[in-house]
Design a protein around this nucleic acid. Structure first.
Lengths: 147, 147
DNA sequence: CAAATAGTGTCAAAGAGTGTCAGAAAGTGT
DNA sequence: ACACTTTCTGACACTCTTTGACACTATTTG
C-alpha cells in the first residue's frame, strides 16, 4: 500500500526520485498516466494491466468509453528506475501535470499520484471542509459494515 | 483496549516511544493518521486495513471517492517499532499535530491518539467544565447493558 | 556529417532515518 | 523498605536516501 506524502525535486532533465519505500512496492517500474484532476497517476505494473483489461472489456460503441480509453492509454508511459531510483517523466506528462522543479508524491492506497506543489495545496485545502468530509466518511462507514 | 494517558518525549529525529502496554495490543505496528481536532489517531493494523480495503473497491471515476482516498491515504503512515519500541512520526504528521518535543498519548478504546501537550491541556480543561458537561452529552445514549 | 538536444550513468555531500547502549526513572514483588 | 525488573530517554555511531553536479551516450535536426 502506498501511504503518505513526499515533496521531491525534479532535476534539469526532468528526472524524479521515487521514494525508496514506493520503489519496493513497484520494483518493476510504474505506469504513469494522466489523472482526472490535472495530476499524474502512477500504477505498479500489475495493477495497471488490470485496469487496462477492464477498460478493454467495455463496449467500443459508447463514445464516453472511447474517450476514457484515449485519455488513459494515449497519456500513459511505462517507466523504470535508473540506478539512482529516478524516473524520467516524459515532457508531455510534465506539461499536463504542470510540474516544473518541485512536486508532491501522494500515496493513495494501491497507486500514487504526482502533483505540482501549487495544485496539491489547493486540493489539500479542499479536504478541510468538515461538512463535505462527514459525508465522505459516512460513505465509507456504510461500506465498512458491508461484510 | 487502549486506556489512560502518557506524556512522552520525542527525540531529535522525531521518534516517539509507544507505551509498552500499547505495543502489546498492536504488536505489528500502527497506522497513524490525521485526526479531526489537530491531533493524530493511531489504529492497530487490522482495523485500518478494513477501511483501506473498502476504499480500494470504490471506483476512481467518482470525484468524491478520489477526494476521500487522498484524504485518508495521503495523511496516513504505516509505522513499526524499532528495537527500543519507538516509531518515527513522519514530518508532515508532526506538523499537522503541532507536535514538537513532548506529546500526550491518549487511549480511547479501540485506538489511541497523539496530541501536542498544549492542545491536549485545552481539550482536557473542556472536559472538566461542569457547566458544559451537564448537558453536553445528554443526547448520547450509553448504558452498561448491551444494545 | 556536425551540432544541438535529450536522455543516462556516476559520484560525493548533505540530510534523514535506524540501531545500540547505558543510565535514569518508574514500577513490581518479597 | 529493599532488591529487582521493566520502561523510557538521550547520546552516539552508523546506514540509507535524496540531490545536484558533471560527464558521457544516443537521438534528432539541419
Amino acid at each position: 500500500m502506498f501511504f503518505g506524502q513526499y515533496e521531491h525535486n525534479i532535476d534539469a532533465k526532468g528526472r524524479l526520485t521515487i521514494p525508496a519505500s514506493f520503489r519496493e512496492q513497484a520494483p518493476e517500474g510504474i505506469y504513469l498516466t494522466e489523472g482526472f484532476d490535472s495530476n499524474l497517476i502512477a500504477y505498479p505494473k500489475q495493477h495497471f494491466e488490470q485496469i487496462a483489461n477492464n477498460l478493454s472489456e467495455l463496449s467500443i460503441t459508447d463514445p464516453e468509453t472511447r474517450a476514457l480509453r484515449r485519455l488513459i492509454f494515449s497519456n500513459a508511459a511505462m517507466l523504470t528506475y535508473d540506478t539512482a531510483g529516478r524516473i524520467l517523466i516524459p515532457a508531455f506528462l510534465r506539461a499536463t501535470g504542470q510540474i516544473n522543479d518541485t512536486c508532491m508524491i501522494i500515496g493513495i492506497g494501491d497507486s500514487f499520484e504526482i502533483w505540482s506543489v501549487e495544485l496539491w495545496s489547493l486540493e489539500a485545502q479542499s479536504h478541510n471542509d468538515p461538512q463535505k468530509n462527514s459525508n465522505r466518511w459516512a460513505a465509507i462507514n456504510i461500506s465498512a459494515r458491508g461484510n
